[in-house]
Design a protein around this nucleic acid. Structure first.
Lengths: 198, 198
DNA sequence: TATATCATGTAATCGGTTACATGATTAA
DNA sequence: TTAATCATGTAACCGATTACATGATATA
């Protein structure tokens, strides 16, 4: 078989369905962006495509909810076959290792080509971006879902640990960004003042 | 204009060409994997495609080197237009923020569906993987290139700072992985021993 | 009145990966 | 003798993104 039946993103949507219960593609996208932001991202149309795929696989069931003055809401629910698929997946060997794509770091490493101010501006914007991320992750920690398979009275311990990963990662990243910014600003100052040596 | 003329990966290859001097696509792939591993990854055929693209843009020049008993080596060199493109790029606003795709984290967050042992095994493999990464990054620190635009007698300070990012990131990641593994192992123990409560 | 949100999707395209082809050299 | 490496690339495909379409409701 060349074409796979499921991908990481497939299992991401599937797993979320367990925690949310029956949900529409639209709502799942919101949940996805909050819960899985630290390790994956998906577009709206991708979520719809994955739900259709899983419907064909029998991993989810769709129920059409009529609405007034709006398009019908298609509400999806995970099936026992879907739960089995999640369990199978956990036993498989990960297809790929961690993949990062970070244009800010790519610019930084070639920062010697930047005109004065450009690199520092890029870094300041990145700092603002990542500070917002940290805040969002901290907010998420206060409304974590319970685990329907285990203790329903407490927030899911896996989500708790993931939250701590997100926070650790963002804090490390921010620490570095601030170091890098100091370096970039110092370089700008050195370039604007008349060079003493050389 | 809808189709872009250059992407982050384009500038990645272009920037490396400054440090390596004239290089073949084959060799650039090796350099790419070492120097840009923390923020981007590229396949061999992608590198060839980017070199062809930049040749058409006039950002690089190609020289064919004949070889005995081997296909000709196409050696690329950056042009002044290429250097200008790098500088322009540094002034633009990054198109996308950080993107992470990490199947290990995705499995972890849905780890309650894992059969006993599966999650811990995934985490142990991830620890081995990331420990290798740390070692590679530390090795890289000992053979960093000089910056041909600045002080040629010292390793490039941008590469030095990137190296420290890679190390910080991997150490944070490893610290978390070990916490997560402890949790997973404890969970496995609790499931194998007869439950006292419930 | 204009924008944003709710809610669904399709079509087209793009960026990236995989598979394949070639053939000599070197190491296990 | 087998496998890996050097060195180049093409073709096909796949996963993901972007743009577009629809139309009501709520908000500014």
């Amino acid at each position: 078989m060349s074409k796979q039946e499921a991908y990481p993103i497939t299992y991401g949507v599937l797993g979320l369905l367990v925690y949310t219960g029956a949900q529409s593609g639209y709502d799942l996208k919101q949940v996805f962006d909050i819960a899985l932001a630290p390790m994956w991202n998906a577009t709206q149309s991708q979520i719809y495509a994955e739900l259709r795929r899983m419907d064909e696989l029998g991993w989810v069931e769709m129920e059409r909810q009529e609405q007034e003055n709006r398009p019908d809401k298609k509400v999806y629910r995970i099936t026992p076959a879907g739960v089995a698929a999640l369990e199978e997946w956990q036993g498989q060997h990960p297809a790929r290792g961690l993949q990062m794509r970070d244009e800010v770091l790519l610019r930084f490493i070639f920062g010697s080509f930047a005109r004065p101010g450009d690199l520092a501006r890029t870094l300041r914007e990145a700092i603002a971006d990542h500070e917002q991320r940290v805040m969002r992750y901290r907010q998420n920690l206060e409304c974590l879902p319970a685990n329907p398979l285990e203790d329903a009275s407490r927030p899911d311990p896996y989500f708790v640990l993931m939250g701590s990963f997100a926070e650790m990662f963002e804090e490390t990243y921010l620490r570095w960004l601030k170091m890098a910014l100091e370096f970039a600003e110092e370089r700008d100052r050195a370039k604007s003042s008349p060079p003493a040596s050389q």
